[in-house]
């Protein structure tokens, strides 16, 4: 992990309140692995914002991030223009365990702004000759993004909470219609992850967690999650954000 200056190469709204930003930096792009995040300093804000890495282009030296404008930090970040720079710590955290079992079938389950890290993961796994099936949930039709990109990786199901696009319902409603798979990876809101890990408890899987962070390097103990009822814990920023699905108590 380093503190680097990243130059904004492009920025655009790709869905409701959702911004896709391409950031240029040699070190970050050459070292990032799927599931890691960048801890971004937004001018005028005390705390950095952890944003997951959605894609990496090592040839172009770029990292793509997607974020939803939910609070003042992400609103301000969305106002940054092409050519401006962002102070970033990263690549941060431990990414997804990839495994080298090519020809295996992988299920990606993403909800809302939890979808982005699964894209770089899916792309990487597809390059390792794994079969990718994606189940993506969004609030409404205007929130949907990256559908075509996921379809290019393999079979993709889209659901929306209000049924305005794809099937109406939650990602868990679709899981039973997915043919057999070997392993799953999931990222999304905690209630979704609780439902996913409960309904797939017999399957090996990994989940990526989000939390309000302080330092982002493991020193301040702001973003911990219990691992058991006996005081065990993990730091989301440093031990995670990816965990084995059975490793932490959601």
């Amino acid at each position: 992990m380093k503190k680097e200056t990243m130059r904004i190469k492009s920025t655009k709204r790709i869905a409701l309140d959702t911004v896709e930003m391409v950031l240029e930096n040699n070190y970050m792009s050459q070292t990032a692995v799927p599931g890691q995040f960048l801890h971004l300093l937004v001018s005028g804000h005390t705390l950095r914002r952890p944003i997951s890495i959605a894609d990496v282009n090592k040839t172009e030296h770029t990292i793509t991030i997607l974020f939803k404008m939910l609070g003042s930090g992400t609103h301000d970040l969305a106002s940054y223009q092409v050519g401006m720079t962002i102070d970033a710590l990263g690549p941060s955290g431990n990414g997804f365990q990839l495994h080298n079992d090519n020809q295996s079938t992988i299920l990606l389950i993403g909800g809302g702004i939890g979808v982005p890290p699964l894209y770089y993961l899916g792309k990487t796994l597809a390059q390792l000759d794994m079969h990718i099936i994606s189940v993506l949930g969004f609030q409404t039709s205007k929130s949907v993004f990256y559908e075509e990109k996921f379809r290019a990786l393999g079979e993709t199901y889209i659901v929306t909470d209000d049924g305005s696009y794809g099937d109406q319902g939650f990602v868990t409603d679709v899981l039973h219609s997915v043919e057999s798979f070997d392993r799953y990876y999931s990222c999304g809101p905690v209630p979704m992850l609780q439902a996913v890990t409960a309904s797939l408890k017999d399957k090996p899987g990994y989940i990526s967690l989000e939390e309000r962070m302080g330092c982002g390097v493991g020193a301040c103990f702001a973003c911990v999650i219990p691992t058991d009822d006996a005081g065990g814990y993990k730091k989301i920023c440093k031990d995670g954000p990816v965990f084995d699905a059975q490793e932490v108590s959601l």
Binding site: R212, G214, A222, V224, G231
Partner: peptide
């Protein structure tokens, strides 16, 4: 172990924390 999360919140020119001496 300390307090439940969220344990930090940003404020104008500052932040609140409630780690709980973990």
């Amino acid at each position: 172990f300390g307090n439940a999360t969220p344990r930090v919140a940003e404020t104008a020119s500052g932040m609140l924390n409630a780690i709980g001496l973990q």
